[in-house]
C-alpha cells in the first residue's frame, strides 16, 4: 500500500476540527451546529450507512411495482392498451423509433438498476478492502449523484403525453399507477445517495497509513 502515500492528507478530523458539509466552514470538534449556515455538524455521519440502506431498500421495493404495473394507458378508436415500461420500449421498437426506445430503456431500466448496484457497492466497500481505488469509488459516487435525477425523465414524458393526448374518441393517453411507483423509486434512490457520506471513502487511507506506523504526511 506504499502508493497511497500521495493520497494521505491532513483531514479536518485529524486536526481536531469538524467541517460543515453545507458551507465548508471549519469549526473546533466540540461544536455541534455551524454558526455560519446553521447546519448540523458531524465529523463523520455515524448514521449515514443505516440511512443509505433504509432509502435503498424502499427504493428497490418501489421499483418492483414500477415495472409490473402499467405506466401508460392508451385508448384509440379500436383498442385500449396498457403499457409497462419495458412494454412501451418494445412498442417503440415496433414503430421504428429505436433512438427514443433506447433513451427510455437507459433512463428507466439501465440507470435505476446501475444506481442500485453502485450505491450498494459504495456502502459495502466502506467496511472492507476493495478492488477499486478511492479515486474510482469517488468518481462512481459523483456519477451516481449526477445521473440519479435524470431517471425522472420518464415521469415527465408520461405527464406531457397524458396532458397533451386527449383527443376525445380518437386517442387518449392516461397515466398508470406505475408512474407513481417509479417516481417514488427515483426519489428514494436520490435520498439514499445523498445520505452517503463520501468522506468514508477516504478515511481508510489515513487509517491504514496510521497502522503502518506513521508515514511522512504532508501538512
Amino acid at each position: 500500500m506504499r502508493d497511497l502515500g500521495k493520497d494521505i492528507a491532513l483531514t479536518a478530523r485529524d486536526a481536531g476540527l469538524v467541517a460543515c458539509t453545507r458551507c465548508q466552514r471549519v469549526w473546533p470538534m466540540a461544536e455541534d451546529r455551524c454558526d455560519r449556515c446553521g447546519a448540523r455538524l458531524a465529523s463523520r455521519d455515524t448514521g449515514s450507512l443505516s440511512r443509505v440502506w433504509a432509502w435503498w431498500c424502499v427504493g428497490v421495493m418501489a421499483y418492483i411495482p414500477a415495472n409490473l404495473w402499467p405506466m401508460l394507458v392508451t385508448r384509440t378508436l379500436m383498442s385500449e392498451s396498457e403499457d409497462t415500461i419495458v412494454g412501451g420500449v418494445i412498442e417503440l421498437m415496433h414503430h421504428d423509433a429505436v433512438g427514443i426506445a433506447i433513451v427510455i430503456l437507459v433512463a428507466s431500466v439501465g440507470i435505476p438498476v446501475a444506481k442500485f448496484i453502485a450505491i450498494a457497492y459504495l456502502a459495502l466497500s466502506v467496511r472492507r478492502v476493495t478492488l477499486l481505488s478511492a479515486h474510482r469509488r469517488q468518481q462512481l459516487y459523483e456519477i451516481v449523484e449526477y445521473i440519479g435525477r435524470w431517471s425522472m425523465i420518464d415521469v415527465f414524458v408520461v405527464a406531457i403525453l397524458s396532458a397533451l393526448v386527449q383527443l376525445n374518441v380518437v386517442a387518449s393517453v392516461n397515466p398508470g399507477p406505475a408512474s407513481l411507483a417509479f417516481a417514488l423509486s427515483v426519489i428514494f434512490t436520490m435520498l439514499s445517495a445523498q445520505a452517503f457520506d463520501p468522506r468514508m471513502i477516504w478515511d481508510r487511507i489515513e487509517e491504514s497509513a496510521r497502522s503502518e506506523g506513521g508515514e511522512a504526511r504532508p501538512a
Partner: peptide, 18 residues
C-alpha cells in the same frame, strides 16, 4: 500550530484540510 479555523477550508467530499 493551526491557524484560526475561519481561514481554513475542508473538502466536503474527502475532509482534506486546506
Amino acid at each position: 500550530m493551526l491557524p484560526d479555523p475561519a481561514e481554513l477550508i475542508a473538502c466536503p467530499t474527502c475532509d482534506a484540510l486546506y
